[in-house]
Design a protein around this nucleic acid. Structure first.
Lengths: 216, 216
DNA sequence: ATTACTATAGCGCGAGTAG
DNA sequence: TCTACTCGCGCTATAGTAA
């Protein structure tokens, strides 16, 4: 039966805890259906063991059974998983050599102190460069579209250093952060920083495939 | 349209974030309906602006729109409220005099130390007695059926003191706990303890009506 | 492979009404 | 009042099929 919406309505009236006084006519008005249809839905749910009903009091009393509670919990769990998954993003990439660019940027006060303040850890002076697998490119768009933690650009000695954003992340359960420059051009490389030297801590070599769990 | 279940299915496949490859035939199998019906549902959802579709790739690509996301969020919020409400119980009662029974029990080591350990506060040596309003009696059954925090009985000087259970609670945002003895006979009085002298802290007198927010 | 049209089958809704 | 039956209409799902 496709009547989970009816059970949900009953639940929102408190039918999970108590017998709730409810006539078929009242339910009909709530669901914008006829009294007859509401009556049939109630009978169907009783038949399926999803609700129970008591007569005798002024109004019929309806309560959701354990089975009905189970259905609602399953539905709730589905929605929870759905929205929890939205907060995370898992991306696979291959470790590549970064030619010490990252290390240079992380020595700059403008980035270093900002990252320390916003991420609440002092980054190791060097980045782990991950070349994202082509099959995962669409996930990079998610990063571009998510706000993340903003990193301001700055000027230093006449040179301009651009803004970007970063995201808390984990690689093999080790805390780190992913940095995404606000470049206009596309890049399939993300840089990962951490308070530790990740290559050593995770025993990584160029060419190794790793999975980054990013918290959006 | 009553097709939220379809949108939910799409969402669980990742359609909230990306275009997901999905033919009407595949959707049909997932929902146990015919390919034709699935096709119509898809068209209907596109018409309502709930999903969008792109052709051109090998498979049709489907993504949930902002409007569709809104519908799912509303549904999720409904379920959240429903289950959050299940964790709390608000009961109204009238302050009555307790004849110092509660005070006596709270001087007993067997109760006092157990409560301190399990509630993580040292109860003031006295209880606030609340006579529950008759209209709220059904809520007392909820307390009887909920596990709560178990309080063991004990023996002291040849006398037996019975077991019970308690629940963390709040009265006017002041932390307290409700004690429910495991008596076989029915009682419409609940005893409330706190680290403070509640009558004074809340300026309560016999006959005052108060509302207790109980955490199940 | 697909999508999605048309025509039909069948189920669900609601009106009328009994108890 | 209430529930819930029958019955007829209509919507919707499905089969067949075209593109």
């Amino acid at each position: 039966m496709e009547n989970l919406g009816v059970v949900k309505q009953l639940a929102m009236m408190g039918g999970l805890r108590n017998f709730v006084p409810l006539s078929s006519g009242e339910l009909a008005k709530m669901l914008n259906i006829s009294q007859q249809s509401a009556s049939k839905k109630i009978l169907g749910l009783i038949d399926d063991g999803i609700i129970e009903r008591q007569f005798g009091a002024k109004k019929p009393l309806i309560k959701i059974t354990k089975k009905g509670l189970g259905l609602l919990q399953k539905e709730y769990a589905d929605y929870r998983r759905m929205f929890e998954a939205l907060k995370k993003l898992s991306v696979k990439g291959v470790v590549i050599s970064g030619m010490d660019e990252g290390r240079y940027y992380l020595t700059l006060k403008g980035y270093k102190e900002q990252l320390k303040r916003k991420l609440r850890f002092s980054p190791y002076e060097g980045t782990l460069n991950l070349k994202i697998l082509p099959s995962e490119f669409s996930k990079l768009n998610v990063l571009k579209e998510s706000p993340g933690i903003n990193i301001d650009g700055f000027q230093d000695g006449g040179r301009t250093f651009g803004p970007g954003k970063c995201f808390f992340a984990k690689i093999k359960n080790v805390d780190c952060a992913v940095i995404i420059p606000n470049r206009s051009h596309y890049s399939d490389v993300v840089e990962v920083i951490s308070k530790d030297y990740l290559r050593e801590k995770l025993s990584l070599r160029n060419g190794d495939e790793v999975e980054v769990e990013i918290r959006l």
